[in-house]
Amino acid sequence: MPAIPAPHASPSTPQGAVPAPDALMERLARAAASYYRDLAAAAATHGLTMAQAKMLILLRQPTPMRALAGLLACDASNITGLVDRLESRGLVSRHLDPGDRRIKNVVATEEGREAVRLVRADMRGTSAAFARLDDEGRRSLYELLGRLHPDETA
Rank of each mutant, 00 (worst) to 15 (best):
Q15M: 11
A9C: 03
G16N: 10
R30L: 15
P2Q: 07
R94S: 02
L133Q: 08
A43L: 09
D122G: 15
K54E: 13
A33H: 12
L59G: 04
R27P: 00
L58G: 10
G70K: 01
Q52I: 08
L144Q: 09
M55C: 14
T49L: 11
D100C: 00
L28T: 04
A44T: 05
R102E: 01
V106R: 01
P62H: 08
H46R: 06
V119K: 01
P150Q: 03
A108P: 06
D38N: 13
R120S: 09
R101C: 00
A42E: 06
P150S: 05
A41Y: 03
R120E: 14
S93P: 00
N78I: 04
N105L: 14
L118V: 09
L59F: 06
V119S: 02
D84T: 11
G81L: 12
T126H: 07
L141G: 04
L118Q: 15
S10W: 00
L82K: 02
G47S: 07
M123Y: 11
G16M: 05
A32D: 12
T49G: 12
H8K: 01
A40S: 15
M55I: 09
P62K: 07
R117G: 12
R89D: 10
S88K: 09
E26L: 02
G81N: 12
G99V: 00
L118K: 13
